[in-house]
Amino acid sequence: MKRAWLWVILPLVLLIALIGIFLTINPLGPLGVSAPPIENLTVERTVLDDRGISLLVRAGGSEPMQIAQIQIDGAYWEFSQNPTGTLSRLATAWINLPYPWVQDETHHIKLITNTGLSFEHEIAVAVPTPQFSLTRVLAYALLGLYVGIVPVGLGMLFYPSLKALGGQGIKFLLALTIGMLAFLLVDTIEEGLELASKAASAFSGNALVWLVTAASFLAIFTLGRRGGKAPEGTALATYLAFSIGLHNLGEGLAIGAAFAIGEAALGSLLVIGFTLHNITEGIGIAAPLVELRPKFPTFLGLTALAGLPAVLGTWMGAFAFSPLWAAMFLGIGAGAIVQVMVEVGSYLARTARKTGGTWLSRVSFAGFSLGLAVMYATALFVNF
């Protein structure tokens, strides 16, 4: 056993030694090849208060870099940096600018390094950044409840009418759910990739979203099948609520960030749009329960699981927004949605066999198409 471990450790040690030798002697020198340092700077967060403007920046270049000068609206301005000194690869620092910004105006910032390279950042609408307080926490929580809990609960109220459906009606409803999930999957991945593009390029955000999606799907799928069979009934509804909850986390992030940067009109429209959009999600969660008689606490738990993440999202968007972490959360949500699509599809196939039919029929195609159409139509209230 010890000999086996030796042959695991020895190649790794040799690899590290070879990399060290390569970096030390630079074998490319005789070829006349040189690798100039690459500088990259990303502004991850902007804070505006009565002290001025604060920027959280992250260095993403191949070598340490130093911010030498800063221009605001074409004029050079004094600044302080915390921590001071050069920024090593992937290091972050707060840049504090005692600048008298003007509310509702646009401000252009240019950060210039000691090598003369510049990076631009725009504050489209200057408004005070929300400060952490109990009043604001409660206010954003109410926004999240309005977007998450209320519409999902309203959608769950369709449950008694769904009970009246026959075998073909259940097939239609399950296919409708898969159609809605397909739209949510595309929407979630699109949002994740958009946020990933705003993170430091060194993190390879786009690849990270896809990798997290795949890992999330495999992890949740393994958990769901740990008993050796596919989840049904309440278990399937729980996985549905969980995946939709992760999607609603992303919606909360969008709303919280919109209000935090001063786009109150956009934030209000997002609240209305997501509220209409999420009613259909409650119907989808209720679909696997039509053959059961769940108790009222079950409905409450499923509604909370699907809706409460929107509250967490509004808090994160308003007070601690990070494009990289937001993209990762959305990747997890996308993986969960794929897992639920597989399980609902499996449940649809089993239901079709019980009624002597097949999962692929005109009824299921009509349901899937209607699910896509409904989600697309309600998304018109969200996209701007």
Rank of each mutant, 00 (worst) to 15 (best):
A17D: 07
L138I: 07
A235L: 10
A318R: 03
G224D: 15
G371D: 14
K354V: 12
I9S: 02
E190G: 10
V137K: 06
I272E: 08
A320K: 11
T106Y: 10
A352P: 01
A237P: 06
A126V: 05
F381R: 13
R293I: 08
D49W: 10
G52K: 11
W5Y: 09
L236P: 06
I337N: 09
I149N: 06
I337C: 12
I189S: 10
T135H: 03
V127I: 02
A175K: 14
I261H: 01
T86H: 06
V340T: 11
E194M: 07
V311F: 03
F158V: 05
A286I: 06
P231I: 11
S133E: 10
M316Q: 03
E78K: 07
T135W: 04
Q69M: 12
I261C: 12
L162G: 04
L173K: 09
P130Y: 14
F183R: 00
G20R: 00
A257I: 03
T113F: 07
G227H: 15
E190P: 02
L269P: 03
Q66S: 15
A310W: 01
T298M: 00
E263F: 10
S88A: 09
Y347T: 13
T238H: 05
L270G: 10
A196K: 00
L174I: 04
L208F: 08
L240K: 04
G169S: 10
T238V: 13
L31M: 08
T358A: 13
G144Y: 02
L162R: 11
L15C: 01
V382M: 03
F319R: 03
H247C: 14
I285W: 02
N278K: 05
G245E: 05
Y146Q: 00
A373D: 13
G167E: 00
N40M: 14
V150F: 07
P231E: 08
W325P: 05
V340L: 06
L185Q: 05
I72T: 00
M180R: 11
V209E: 02
L249M: 13
K295T: 12
I337K: 10
G252F: 15
K354F: 05
K163D: 10
L380C: 08
A141Q: 02
L138M: 04
E343Q: 09
I67V: 14
L305V: 08
T355R: 07
W7Q: 12
L348P: 14
L142M: 12
E251H: 00
G317S: 05
I272T: 12
Q81T: 02
A327W: 00
F221I: 11
K198S: 01
L348Q: 15
S361P: 01
A310M: 01
R362P: 01
Y239G: 12
T280L: 12
A199M: 09
T113Y: 06
S268M: 04
L270M: 14
F158C: 13
Y239A: 06
H277M: 11
L193M: 04
G367N: 09
L380E: 07
I16H: 15
G179M: 12
